[in-house]
Simulated assay, not measured.
Amino acid sequence: MSGPVAALLSGNRLHLQHGPIDLVIGADGDRDAAFAAARARFATVLDELVTELALLRRPVGAVPQGAIARCMQDAVAPHADGIVTPMAAVAGSVAEAVLAAMVAATPLRRAYVNNGGDIALHLTGDETFRLAVAAPDSTDLGRVDISARDRVRGIATSGQGGRSLSLGIADAVTVLAATAAQADVAATLIGNAVDLPGHAAIRRAPAREVQPDSDLCDHPVVVRVGPLGCADIEAALDRGLAMAQNMAARGLIQGAALFLRGGVRTTGLPGTDISQGKILTHA
């Protein structure tokens, strides 16, 4: 595998890529110093994770040694159920680690690290961050405005058909939380909860048959979702919403938006303009 690659993008953004990790970074302040710190920290990330990969692919147990691995473990620990592994928080934890290096290197008014849709934020003063929410088919679903006063510094999106395998059928679940790692694992688990166990239209297969190195091993992941009626969509979304509301009540997330086949459920989102699409029947 080749080493880390860095490139400047339009809009004064930095693109960093190494293996499966792909970051887009922005910073307001001493951008040169921030980007230099991001490149230096990113150069160590993949090797750091690979060292403990076998441990990170197991359900929460022994404490890992690396800083990113410990962040992953800490984010997943409140959700430990014998299935979820620290890998559920890997994208958010990597984003946090790179952002932390930037903030430590130089004062920044605002900064973000976007790891494939899992975003770590740094906001100060009157700075804000506007999140555009889109469906898997790129339909614009609205905006969420986050200010420095909000207790949100992490955003993550998960769902069936995304980068990772899912136990549920959500098209997408976007979560806001205090950290990117917390948002990452919560989005995964809420996406898993948007489900209709035993429904004839949903086909599942052992995770290792779909992705041989999956940390989900033989747990059944969704590989196809057929036609669903309005009542089915509502029931599946309500299951996911119940989990999201439970997480919010426990202080694990700040808010969430859940999407399935044109149906939408939201809870606890600040400055929200999310399209409340109609429940549609899809053949």
Rank of each mutant, 00 (worst) to 15 (best):
D232T: 02
G263R: 07
H15V: 00
A187F: 14
S138P: 01
F35P: 01
A257T: 15
K278G: 10
A244R: 10
L176I: 09
I274Y: 12
G26N: 02
P197S: 04
P64N: 03
G251A: 07
R143L: 14
L23W: 12
D28Y: 07
Q65D: 09
H15S: 10
I21K: 02
A105Q: 03
P64S: 05
L131P: 03
L8A: 08
I25Y: 14
V5N: 09
G168C: 05
G29V: 06
R265Q: 12
R239L: 10
I202M: 02
T124S: 15
A7P: 01
A205P: 03
L216Q: 08
R203W: 05
M72S: 07
I233P: 01
Q245H: 10
I146L: 08
G191H: 08
G154L: 10
I119V: 15
V90C: 01
D273I: 06
D81E: 07
L176D: 11
Q182L: 03
A187T: 07
A200W: 07
A201N: 06
L141W: 08
Q65H: 10
A236I: 04
Q276I: 06
V76N: 06
L237K: 03
P59V: 01
V63C: 04
A120G: 14
R153S: 13
F42M: 13
V194D: 12
A62S: 06
A101F: 06
A6I: 04
I146N: 10
H15F: 03
A7N: 05
A36S: 15
A40T: 15
V5W: 01
G159R: 01
S147T: 15
P107Y: 13
S147G: 15
G82W: 00
P78Y: 07
L99F: 07
D126P: 00
Q211K: 12
R58M: 08
E52W: 00
V175F: 11
V94W: 00
H122C: 09
L14C: 13
L167G: 04
I253H: 08
A172E: 04
A257E: 11
I119H: 10
T267E: 09
G19W: 08
L9Y: 01
H122Q: 09
V264L: 15
R110K: 11
V223C: 13
D32K: 15
A244Y: 10
